[in-house]
Nucleic acid binder design. Structure first.
Lengths: 191, 191
DNA sequence: CCATTCAGTAAACAGTCGTTTGCCGAACTT
DNA sequence: AAGTTCGGCAAACGACTGTTTACTGAATGG
């Protein structure tokens, strides 16, 4: 049922999805839906969890790898690109419903992204560059990184349909922007 | 009719909007809709134009004002906050449909944001800090700024419903992140 | 002053929708 | 072996949907 929903949401909105539509796609009877979810919103938050699980392991794999800023950035962009390629529907779902019309889903995504930011912040705190940074500033930096990650993923989503040239353009821009941020970070002195 | 649609879209998705729904809200008969739009998608792109008109004047007002980086940033964040306050529905519509389920609307928004980036890029090129920057790099920087502007606006949208404390938090984060970027920009040397 | 466009209407069309109900077989539990 | 939960079904309910058609009055223009 989750797969059916995800498939339908390829070119549709969660709010415009119908119970019958989902069950039809899944090859079940309409009543079967209510055996598993009370709402379509509930199916939405289930999809959020499913989608962010894979994203989570991706983030960890980037954070685990230590190394110079340049290498980390290159690797991060590569990992994002590959992740989008392998989980198109999940990424599309997240990017579409992050500001979508179903509050419960929006909130679930936001909460999970917040947890990501916490994780990124913890990793940043361990790096020597962060000496003297307040916790608040680290948090805001982490949010900036997470936000860029999401934006980049959305951009890849569209780019991968427009040929590899545009795809390389996105990767270049992402690397440039991340380098700029990390450069600013190194020259930052207190707020 | 546009106003009716915008009002409905406060807690709904363009893709899940109905013709009858709109006309009912507008106090007209269903058939009247087709006198003005062939599609709901057409109403969508009309709303895009309406929404981005006001955004456009906002951007210009920020770009026009010269001054130190700090002052420009502070003023930009203030202008964004005020704009969101005065045009809640428009901003919500844009943020929701930017990655929404209706392709024509998505493309209209993207095209317009691209034009914004061009405008921002032109303004950045005039500043002395940009000596030696390639056009490509300037473009990517401009896109980073536009993207942050949109993200910040979305954040304000949610924050203004959660009280002024959260609102100040968003403003602080936005200023911090913009300062970090402009710092990176000053220390950038070629790509 | 006549013709035409404009913006609106009511009515009808055939579908689709969400949800509830009662029923059923299979699989577990005890 | 008996009982209970689980996941599934068909059928039915009324309500709502997008779109077309034929018609109407007012404004506009020559």
């Amino acid at each position: 049922m989750l797969d059916a929903g995800l498939h339908l949401l390829a070119d549709q909105n969660l709010a415009s999805l119908g119970v019958r539509e989902v069950t039809r796609e899944a090859g079940l009877s309409p009543a079967a839906f209510y055996r598993h979810f009370p709402d379509l919103a509930a199916l939405g938050v289930a999809l959020v969890e499913e989608s962010l699980a894979s994203l989570h392991v991706m983030i960890r794999s980037v954070l685990a790898e230590a190394g110079g800023a340049e290498e980390v950035i290159d690797r991060a962009v590569d990992v994002i690109e590959q992740h989008v390629r392998e989980h198109r529907s999940h990424v599309r779902f997240l990017s579409r419903e992050r500001h979508g019309g179903v509050r419960q889903v929006r909130e679930a995504i936001d909460a999970e992204l917040g947890r990501f930011a916490t994780e990124v912040g913890a990793a940043l705190a361990l790096q020597p560059v962060s000496r003297g940074w307040s916790e608040r500033d680290l948090r805001m930096l982490a949010e900036l990184y997470v936000d860029r990650m999401v934006s980049t993923a959305s951009a890849f989503l569209e780019a991968q349909e427009s040929g590899p040239a545009r795809e390389r353009g996105i990767a270049d821009a992402a690397r440039f922007q991340l380098r700029l941020i990390s450069l600013g970070r190194r020259h930052w002195q207190g707020s």
